[in-house]
């Protein structure tokens, strides 16, 4: 077994195989596990995927939403146990891989066209 295969086998225990297909521009809801006072609950975070980073176990997405007039961006490690579930709400049409231009826009200009050729 070579080094690459050994490292993959270590990662395999942590990699999730039930993740939905996510694309840049999608609107998703991420369930985040939160521990407070010995109790665990799942807090949803809804927003647009503006960036994705591949890399096996360190695969991550950046989700942006505007909350009370303030832009909030969260980066999620997709395979982290803190990410309880991910639900795709809407497929968006994006012409580039990173939608950082949305940071400079407010209100109606932040909308993305919906696309219907990808299943939810």
């Amino acid at each position: 077994m070579n080094a690459e295969a050994i490292i993959r086998s270590i990662e395999a225990k942590h990699i999730k195989d039930d993740l939905p297909e996510i694309y840049v521009g999608d609107t998703i809801r991420v369930g985040v596990r939160i521990q407070e006072g010995g109790k665990e609950r799942i807090q949803p975070f809804e927003g647009t995927v503006i960036a994705m980073r591949n890399g096996g176990i360190s695969e991550s997405i950046t989700v942006r939403r505007v909350f009370q007039g303030v832009g909030v961006e969260r980066v999620f490690l997709l395979h982290a146990p803190r990410v309880a579930n991910i639900q795709v709400l809407r497929r968006g049409k994006a012409r580039r891989a990173k939608l950082y231009y949305l940071r400079d826009r407010v209100g109606k200009a932040t909308r993305l066209k919906q696309r219907f050729d990808r299943a939810l």
């Binding site: 080094a3 490292i7 270590i10 990662e11 225990k13 942590h14 096996g56 176990i57 395979h79 146990p81």
Partner: peptide, 10 residues
Amino acid sequence: GTKLGMTQIF
């Protein structure tokens, strides 16, 4: 030992 490489685990 031999260093095989780096990764991350949870």
